[in-house]
Nucleic acid binder design. Structure first.
Length: 561
RNA sequence: GCGCCCAUAGCUCAACCGGAUAGAGCAACGGCCUUCUAAGCCGUAGGUUGCAGGUUCGAUUCCUGCUGGGCGCGCCA
């Protein structure tokens, strides 16, 4: 429909250029948008406003000329000029109703597109170090990152989900020391407890399993405990595997799967870190000062230079980061999106600067970042800060256990990444109309119920009869639903392009609202076969889009509630 | 002090690369279940989009300055 209108307007411009009414050199990107207010018709274009200046005419006057030159089309019943010069189009019912046929025809594919042309995209998200269970912040990253991947897949990209983690640094040593302390019967209150040791209950669990000689299997490793409390390296190996498994279980419970787990240690083992240093030094972007090796990142927009190699000879985290991203580039990812907590935003400029200094043709501003702000969890209006499992933070699993996977995913992905999020446990777990997840799922279940009812009555849905009678869907409420359905592909495209998963959540809420309104206004189970089937067709199309949208968020679409 | 992000109804949040009268939900008030699931619907009320300027036909959206909040400013990650 939208495309039809664009081509009509295009036709008008061509005609007017021929007639000399419009200058030939005029270039216009024709924009047609669905209207917010149905008094403005179904679609509107600001073309006359855009062209007014180059055409040397007043907007409303130009709008009149454009309308006069508009080719006839059965899909458009009325065209009006409104406001400062908008051209409003009223779609014929039959034309608008075609979306129902289209949705039923496309099924799961409705809303999907090939915009990405199979281009490889890598999305790195979560990337938690294996030092504890995943916390809410990781949860937000997981929800946003996974939804983003689903959006990119739906728009035709070849997506790789990647999880990067450090399995060897100072913090991992700290983990091993903490487990060792527990294995030796020490607690945080003891004088010899490691400085900055991890205190959660899970540390004791790891220690117990280690002493018991347990085996753990994670996605990318399998380790059997040695049981010797004096062997710190063995403890470390076991602890990392144990927490990798723990995080695997967190992610599994959350319904997120990764294609690649990338180990920071592999960059050292394969000499990638050394290579990166060498390249940076050769390019003349480094210098030594106070026993450390520095990279002149200020030459690439950073506000201070950064240490690459500490005076003790170890590298800072920053260097493997650069090596890792070089690796991504070398794997052929022209588009890489890093989903991270905004508390790490300072790494963005740094990593990009390092990549520029490599001088290997990586574009400025590569890779892309999606940064999410902090999450605060509240219960009964009070911030929740502790969890038995992890000690000082709320875990993803705590939330899933308490409010369920659907609500957790929805709540964490339904807000813009760059605004702070308050996760209200009471709201998320309430089985009531306060809860937006249920509002959407209920709409889906309602259609399913409707379908069951007709089947019970021996009035099975007649697909052909429905499609032949879509013109009967005449009420304002039905039209509102149809117009909403028609917008879905555009919303998906936009959400993917802008990397904004929350747009899907928002869309689903409005679609569910349109549907509930329609449900109350228009009865589906009527005697008239043609009418009943047409309406049922609309219901089924709505169900399909709700399902497709929920699937993009990784949220289930229950058949009954 | 410097950098990044945010500020929209009493509360939680939307607003589709600048569009028409800024929208939902919750909370408040008034209605709707012998009829497809009331986890729903209809109606009423609620706003100087933090403040002050600027850009233009038009600004919640873009720019500048301020105020308030979050995060960061390690040879930690």
């Amino acid at each position: 429909m939208k495309d039809t209108i664009i081509s009509l307007l295009d036709g008008a411009i061509v005609t007017l250029k021929h007639q000399g009414v419009l200058p030939n050199d005029i270039q216009a990107v024709i924009k047609v948008d669905p209207t917010k207010d149905k008094a403005h018709g179904d679609y509107a274009s600001n073309l006359a406003l855009i062209l007014a200046k180059p055409a040397g005419k007043k907007p409303r006057e130009l709008a009149e000329i454009l309308i006069a030159a508009l080719p006839q089309d059965a899909a458009v019943t009325k065209v009006e000029i409104a406001g400062p010069g908008f051209i409003n189009f009223f779609a014929a019912t039959t034309a608008a109703a075609q979306v129902v046929a289209q949705v039923l025809d496309c099924g799961d594919a409705f809303g999907r597109s090939l915009i990405g042309k199979g281009e490889k995209v890598q999305v790195e998200f979560v990337s938690a170090n294996p030092t504890g269970p995943l916390h809410v912040g990781h949860g937000r990253g997981a929800a946003i990152g996974d939804c983003l991947c689903r959006l990119l897949e739906a728009t035709g990209y070849d997506v790789t989900r990647e999880f990067y983690y450090n399995d060897a640094g100072v913090q991992i040593r700290n983990l091993a020391l903490s487990v060792q302390a527990r294995a030796k019967g020490l607690g945080p209150e003891d004088a010899s407890w490691p400085k900055d040791g991890y205190r959660g209950q899970y540390i004791s669990d790891v220690a117990d399993d280690y002493l018991a000689g347990a085996s753990v299997a994670a996605d990318d490793r399998h380790v059997t405990a040695k049981g010797d409390p004096d062997d710190l390296d063995a403890i470390q190996e076991f602890a990392v595997a144990w927490l990798r498994r723990e995080q695997d279980l967190d992610l599994k419970a959350f319904g997120v799967e990764f294609d690649v787990y990338f180990l920071e240690s592999s960059l050292y083992e394969e000499g990638k870190v050394e290579e990166t240093v060498k390249r940076l030094v050769e390019n003349g972007h480094t210098y030594e000062d106070a026993g450390a090796l520095w990279l002149r990142t200020t030459a690439f927009g950073d506000d201070k230079d950064r240490v690459m190699r500490k005076k003790d000879g170890d590298y800072t985290y920053f260097l493997p980061d650069v090596a890792y991203h070089l690796n991504k580039w070398q794997r052929g990812f022209k588009t890489v999106i890093n989903e991270q907590g905004a508390d790490h935003h300072s790494t963005v400029t740094r990593v990009r600067a390092g990549l520029q200094a490599l001088e290997v043709g990586i574009p400025q501003g590569w890779p892309d970042y999606v940064l999410h702000q902090m999450v605060m969890v509240t219960r009964s209006g009070v911030e929740v800060k502790i969890s038995k499992r992890a000690g000082s933070y709320v875990t993803v699993r705590d939330l899933i256990d308490e409010v369920g996977r659907d609500a957790t995913r929805f709540f964490l992905a339904a807000r813009r990444a760059d605004s702070q999020l308050t996760f209200d446990i009471d709201l998320a777990r309430s089985q009531s109309n306060d809860n937006p997840v249920y509002y959407i799922q209920y709409a889906h279940a309602r259609v399913c119920s409707m379908l069951r009812k007709t089947q019970d009555a021996g009035q099975d849905f007649d697909h052909d009869l429905a499609l032949a009678n879509l013109a009967l869907l005449e009420s304002d409420q039905e039209k509102a639903v149809m117009n909403r359905l028609a917008r879905f592909p555009g919303v998906v495209e936009n959400a993917a392009k802008n990397r904004e998963p929350q747009q899907i959540a928002q869309y689903l809420l409005t679609l569910a609202g349109d549907f509930h309104t329609c449900y109350n206004a228009v009865k589906v189970m009527v005697e008239d076969d043609t009418l009943r089937n047409a309406r049922l067709g609309l219901g089924l199309a709505t169900r399909q889009v709700l399902r497709n949208g929920l699937d993009l968020m990784g949220v289930s679409a229950p058949e009954e509630m």
